[in-house]
């Protein structure tokens, strides 16, 4: 059942042979004099769901932003599907073919309809015929349960609906890995559950996911591995049962206490 492998240290070794799709090795990232990531290592295998939590400024967003190269790491290496990320074309291609991302602020294209938001990537980047892209988009809109909103503009939708459109937009690129950067943090409380439900369904369908979130109920339900980060380091990494039941580090215990009993 151990799907975790903490590289360099080697205390967790893989128990089965599922393919490692993302491999982060000793990655450091600096913003000016501030070190946002300190030699972080993490392996993600196909089909695995990883939930990352930690205080703000702990580097969790930076970590996933490095994985699809919205940020460039300065030390260490990140490998996606066997391709090391760098400035090269092959690296860009590996990210495009494998990784999708859902943002805290949705980042939908406000001047395009929902359907246009969904088909832009498939039509322009994947050269899919328009009719096919449309079918694809409608299929994924149905999957996030808002097929009837296809011709509306993002501003006409609620926050929860907008985030579900954003999820559908990522899915239309048919990625193997989906990254979520605090997907419910910008939502009104009553809209959080509709987004989490869609994410849980995705998880159940076998999508590889790395989710940065403070929604611990969701984490408990879907995570294969819990990761706790603080000050740019991975402090604790374990299965949810152990993570929530008996966290090893003091910092993690404190953090969990704060967010579980507020």
């Amino acid at each position: 059942m151990h799907k975790i492998r903490k590289s360099n240290v080697g205390e967790f070794m893989p128990a089965n042979d599922a393919q490692t799709i993302i491999s982060v090795r000793g990655v450091s990232k600096f913003f000016g004099g501030f070190q946002a990531l300190k030699e972080v290592s993490l392996d993600v295998r196909l089909g695995e769901r990883i939930v990352v939590c930690g205080p703000s400024g702990s580097g969790k967003s930076t970590l996933i932003r490095c994985i699809n190269r919205l940020e460039k790491h300065e030390q260490g290496s990140i490998t996606i599907d066997g391709v090391e990320l760098n400035e090269g074309k092959e690296s860009l291609h590996a990210i495009r073919a494998n990784v999708g991302m859902v943002f805290q602020q949705f980042n939908l294209f406000p001047h395009l309809t929902v359907l246009e938001n969904l088909t832009l990537g498939p039509v322009r980047a994947k050269k899919l015929p328009k009719a096919e892209a449309r079918d694809l988009a409608l299929r994924y809109l149905a999957r996030v349960r808002i097929p009837e909103q296809a011709d509306k503009y993002p501003r006409q939708l609620s926050g929860g609906q907008q985030q579900r459109v954003a999820i559908a937009r990522s899915l239309c690129m048919e990625p193997r890995i989906l990254l979520f950067d605090e997907p419910t943090s910008a939502l009104d409380p009553e809209m959080i559950s509709e987004v989490l439900e869609v994410m849980a369904e995705l998880a159940a369908s076998g999508m590889t996911m790395i989710v940065v979130t403070h929604e611990m109920g969701f984490a408990r339900k879907v995570a294969d591995v819990m990761v706790f980060m603080d000050h740019g380091e991975i402090v604790e990494m374990s299965e949810p049962e152990k993570f929530f039941g008996a966290p090893e580090s003091e910092r993690c215990r404190e953090f969990l206490q704060k967010i579980l009993h507020h």
Partner: peptide, 21 residues
């Protein structure tokens, strides 16, 4: 907003498509 570039990147648009669309 910077997020628009990031979203375009996340759906694999290249520079000229990002600008144009």
């Amino acid at each position: 907003d910077k997020g628009q570039y990031e979203a375009a990147h996340s759906v694999s648009l290249n520079y000229s498509d990002t600008m144009r669309f």
